[in-house]
């Protein structure tokens, strides 16, 4: 049903686009949320498990991502039959497995703190964005690789990076026809690439639990692909073991499952 609605919206938008009047950022975000499934559906999502195949640096490897509404997350990669937790966060502490030793190591405290401050982005940063204290701004109506888009700036609360308080914002490109996001532009907040942006393109949208979600994700920097992921399955509101996200104090190779 949602699918039909979305297609209808696409058709209407494209055939009557000349009637469209200037839209505010709020209206664009509202249309986006409505078109991908509506806030009610989005609010029902309590957790997600995303599985797929990733490609980076000429390698292909299976990936599983876990995310929960209370901000816990974990990303596991499989290399040579071994599961490696690339990154996990239990709401307080972030950690990952060192590739040399196979042992879990904690992230720098500042990074954990940064992740904690972004707890509320699940399942979509725009969901209830006002309550979260975020603001949106229409930067411009432009084109993304030839496709007309709205460029929206999403500003969250400032964060501490490298000992300095930094504004925390990113840009989203919404398709003018369907209002879904075609890309997200994140700005590196630390390291030598600080201030440089990474474009993450999303496509192959399909319906999961009444919500349109992208099944293809590709990150590029200056036009060069850094990482891509073809998503095979998205499970919503599934059972996830509690201990999955916690830093494995004693054992190695990630937490229990």
């Amino acid at each position: 049903m949602k699918k039909i609605f979305l297609l209808l919206a696409v058709c209407c938008a494209s055939s009557f686009s000349y009637l469209a009047t200037a839209q505010t950022a709020e209206e664009i975000v509202a249309s986006y949320l409505e078109n991908i499934g509506g806030e009610e559906q989005l609010n029902k999502i309590k957790n997600m498990v995303i599985t797929g195949k990733s490609q980076a640096q000429g390698m292909e490897f299976p990936v599983t991502m876990y995310q929960t509404a209370d901000g816990k997350q974990r990303m596991d990669l499989v290399f040579q039959g071994k599961e490696i937790t690339q990154m996990a966060f239990d709401g307080e502490v972030g950690w990952g497995v060192n590739f040399m030793t196979g042992e879990a190591e904690k992230m720098e405290a500042e990074q954990s703190k940064m992740m904690k401050e972004q707890l509320t982005d699940f399942p979509d940063p725009f969901l209830n964005y006002k309550e979260k204290g975020y603001t949106v701004e229409l930067v411009e109506e432009t084109e993304l690789e030839g496709t007309p888009v709205y460029k929206i700036k999403l500003t969250k609360k400032p964060i501490m990076v490298e000992g300095e308080e930094l504004e925390n914002f990113s840009f989203y490109y919404f398709d003018k026809d369907s209002y879904v996001t075609l890309a997200q532009e994140e700005i590196a907040k630390a390291g030598p690439m600080k201030g440089q942006s990474t474009m993450t393109y999303t496509s192959d949208y399909d319906e999961v639990a009444g919500v349109y979600m992208p099944f293809s994700i590709t990150s590029k920097m200056n036009g060069t692909t850094m990482f891509s992921m073809a998503i095979e399955k998205i499970d919503v509101n599934t059972d996830i073991a509690e201990g999955l996200f916690a830093f494995p104090e004693a054992n190695s190779e990630g937490g229990e499952k």
Binding site: L6, T147, S178, L182, S203, D204, D206, F215, S216, A230
Partner: peptide, 10 residues
């Protein structure tokens, strides 16, 4: 001709 947005592409 158009950007691919919806459904699978392989």
């Amino acid at each position: 001709k158009k950007r691919h947005i919806f459904g699978p592409m392989k």
